[in-house]
Computed example of a mutant assay.
Amino acid sequence: MDQSQEPEGPLEIAIVGDLTDNESDLTEKLLGVEPGGECLIYFDSPGGSPYCAMSLMTLIRMRRIRATGIVTGECSSAALWPFAACERRIVTPYSVLLFHPMRWQSEENVGLSEAAEWARHFGQLEREMDDLLGELFGVSPELMAKWISPGRYVSGGEVAEAGMAELVRFNDLHKIGDMFNAAESDNHPQSNGRLKAHMPAEDRRAN
């Protein structure tokens, strides 16, 4: 095989483990997707820094990246925001998503006044990010509040039932890869829409 040839299909990115530990690498990979281009993002992450989550989410939207997010294992906490920013979202019956209030920590030597200001800032950030999460997923603030506080593990089936993602049966996952390859070979700018149209009706959920 000629190593100089471009790989077939959209760029694939794996968000695995803590977002904060992998922020530099994930940022570089997202910047490797041309503006308006397609990519697949596989999620198996417990979360991480909310600031890192905001940065990845912002890059996806600012560069108009047509990302398809697939929860291969866990997508929890801060990892929910880049997943919500994906144009298309896919889960399996075994996907797990944890919604909970933001958690923060600071250095032990932080001053009292600084800690008070940090708590104020984080409280405001939490409210705004919770609202944004519901907006990106296209669900009501009431549903987000029900899942976030005090915190709830949500299955792929529940997420799909709420209209936040498409549910694909485990034995049908190979069809996703086949459809991406087929759409890429068609070289059509609206390939993502055709992929959804070609999905079996029982496997589609509005996102």
Rank of each mutant, 00 (worst) to 15 (best):
T58Y: 14
Q124M: 06
P82M: 04
M1H: 02
G17S: 03
D44S: 02
M57L: 15
E12H: 13
E8Y: 07
M129H: 07
G48M: 05
E38M: 07
P141C: 07
A145E: 11
W104A: 11
L97G: 00
W118R: 14
D44A: 05
S55A: 15
A116I: 04
G163N: 04
G48K: 03
A183R: 10
Q105W: 10
S155G: 13
E87L: 06
G156W: 11
R169V: 05
A14T: 09
E38N: 12
I41W: 11
P7L: 11
H100I: 05
L98S: 06
P10Y: 02
G17Y: 01
G69N: 03
E117N: 09
H174F: 15
P35E: 06
I13H: 10
D44W: 00
M1L: 02
H100G: 11
A201I: 12
S77C: 08
V110W: 10
T72M: 14
A79E: 08
I70M: 09
S191R: 14
I148Q: 04
M144S: 04
V168R: 04
D131T: 13
G163D: 01
A67E: 02
E8V: 13
G157E: 12
S45H: 08
V139E: 04
E117C: 04
M179E: 14
V71T: 03
L11M: 08
R194G: 15
Q190N: 15
W147I: 08
E8N: 09
F137A: 04
L143W: 08
F137N: 02
M57S: 15
S4T: 14
S95C: 02
A197K: 11
E135W: 10
E184P: 10
R204T: 13
L97Q: 03
G156P: 08
D172R: 09
G177N: 08
L143G: 01
R88W: 10
P150N: 08
L133N: 05
G134L: 05
L136I: 04
S140M: 07
I90T: 05
Q190V: 10
A84W: 03
P46H: 03
T27P: 01
S45C: 09
L112A: 08
Y42M: 09
E126G: 08
C39W: 01
K146L: 06
G177M: 00
G48W: 02
H100T: 09
F99C: 04
N22K: 15
E114K: 01
G123W: 11
W81R: 08
A116W: 00
A206F: 07
G138D: 07
L40Q: 07
R66W: 02
P150A: 05
D25L: 12
Q5N: 07
N207G: 10
L195C: 12
M199C: 13
L132H: 13
S140L: 07
A182N: 09
V96F: 00
I90R: 03
L30P: 04
D172T: 02
S149D: 13
E202T: 11
D21V: 11
E158C: 10
D178C: 05
